[in-house]
Structures are given as C-alpha cells and as structure tokens.
C-alpha cells in the first residue's frame, strides 16, 4: 500500500469480510433459527419461539431409529478408523523417509477420492462379495472415509514423539507391552481420542457413501434427505440442528485434545 489507509477503505474491507461471513453462516443460522419458531413456514418476522419441533422430531420413531443407527455407525467407525489409523501411523513413523512418505501419501489419498466414486465402488464391491446392504456395509464405508484423517492426525503427533522414551522404558525393565501401556498409550491418548472424534464427526455427517451402502436402513442424514423430498417440515430443521450441534461439539473437542501436546 502506498497511501495512508482512509476511513472509506477500512469500511469497505470490513463490509467485504462481513458479506463473506454472512454467505458462510446465514443458511446454517436460518435452519437453526427456524427450528425454534412457532410458524410452520420459513417466514419473517419471527412471531414466537417454541421447542415443539424438537419434541415432534424426538417423538418420531423414524427419527429415534435413525439417531440410534447414526450413533452406532459413528462409534464403530471411530473405533475401526482409530485402531487401524493409529497402528498404520506408528508403523510408518519408524520407516525410512522415502518409504514413509510414499506410504503416508498412499494412506491419505482416499481423502481426495470423490465420495460419490467411493460410495458406488464400495456398493459394487459389496455386491460382488455377496455382502447385502445394511449397517455393516455403511460402517465399513464410513470407517474408510475417516481413516485418512486419523492417519494424518496420529502421524502429526508421532512426528514429535520421542521414541527413545520407549527404549528407556524397556531398558528399565518394561516388557514391550508394559512400555506401551505405561509410556506410549498415555502419551498419544489425547491425539488418539481427538482423531477418533474426528472420525465420529465424519461418520455422523456422511450421506453419500452411507446412502449407497446402507440399504433400507436410516441414518440421520439419509432420513433428512428422505423427508426433504416430501417437503420442508420445520421438524427437519430440528433434526439438522441436532446433527449440527453434535458435529460442532465433536470437532471442537477433537481440536482441544490435539492442542494438548507434550
């Protein structure tokens, strides 16, 4: 910049930033807002506030069933992606630089495969393998979606991990298992939990891969999509807001856990 920053310049910059943020957040805000309004239509001004839509949603057996399925899938993919991803990161971290980079890239690559391709490929694969659609197939697909993120998170932690502490533990009389229990696990636990929560969030959020593989079962995103096809009902806003709240919580927790570094 050459000249002094004028007041007009400053206002313009602020205005622009606010416009971008509005663009980002208004659709979400509208959904959350209308999950609390008395009017059955999306209209302004807001005439009154209510929790009726939440009550309606939570008393709907379709919703509670989908919620239960979503939670089961989220838990499964957190465990599967967490265990597989952490083990992979541990193995890779000990390799020579070249091999390590190749394996790491390969392990993370599925993250950029379009979900549509992933969903269809899995569906075809399961069909060939004779595995009928259902929660099992969806769980496998969702864990696959979360795995690259777990690998990245865990590898980032292990990059600063002092492996000589493990040798020290062995040297002082600990068996390999004991050294893992006393040293490795406590040290990577925050990152592992963070990575698992991230996998959980990705699972709760996933629609495409799930939709191709879950068959006639419902998860929250699949249910919302189904209900939307029959027209907007404010209880959908309540559903979506519920999903949103759980996702934000999971991601914030994951971030906090990963910030705690030793």
């Amino acid at each position: 910049m050459t000249g002094p920053r004028t007041r007009a310049h400053g206002l313009l910059a602020w205005g622009f930033a606010v416009a971008v943020l509005l663009y980002l957040f208004v659709p979400v805000a509208v959904t959350v807002l209308f999950s609390f309004t008395t009017s059955p239509r999306l209209s302004l001004p807001v005439t009154g506030l209510t929790l009726d839509w939440y009550e309606k949603a939570f008393s709907n057996p379709l919703f509670t069933d989908a919620l239960a399925n979503s939670l089961i899938l989220a838990f499964l993919s957190a465990v599967v992606a967490g265990v597989l991803g952490a083990s992979f990161a541990f193995g890779v971290a000990r390799l020579r630089r070249r091999t390590r980079n190749i394996l790491l890239t390969a392990g993370v690559l599925p993250a950029i495969v379009p979900a549509l391709v992933l969903g269809i490929s899995l569906a075809l694969f399961f069909q060939e393998a004779g595995l009928s659609q259902g929660l099992r197939n969806a769980a496998i697909g969702q864990a696959l979606v979360g795995l690259p993120f777990v690998i990245l998170t865990m590898y980032a932690r292990l990059e600063t991990f002092d492996f000589s502490t493990l040798e020290a533990a062995r040297d002082l009389g600990a068996s390999p298992w004991r050294a893992f229990r006393d040293i490795t696990f406590p040290l990577v636990r925050p990152s592992l939990l963070g990575a698992a929560l991230l996998a959980m969030a990705l699972s709760l959020d996933d629609f495409v891969v799930t939709w191709f593989n879950v068959g006639s079962r419902q998860t929250l995103p699949v249910l919302i999509w189904g209900l939307l096809r029959r027209g907007i009902d404010p209880s959908i806003n309540a559903l979506a807001s519920t999903v949103l709240l759980s996702l934000v919580t999971l991601v914030v927790l994951a971030k906090l856990l990963n910030r705690k570094k030793l």
Binding site: D162, S164, T165, E167, A168, A169, R170, D171, L172, G173, A174, S175, D182, I183, P186, L187, L262
Partner: peptide, 20 residues
C-alpha cells in the same frame, strides 16, 4: 537377551525422560 532382562542401564543423549 532383550534390554529389559539385562543388568545394564542407559543414559540417553537427550535424557529421554517420560514427559508425562
């Protein structure tokens, strides 16, 4: 014999203390 069953102990270059 693996390290945990040897009567030797080591001091590492950077200590390798258990940070937790």
């Amino acid at each position: 014999v693996p390290p945990e069953r040897r009567p030797t102990n080591i001091v590492f270059q950077r200590g390798a203390l258990f940070p937790h």
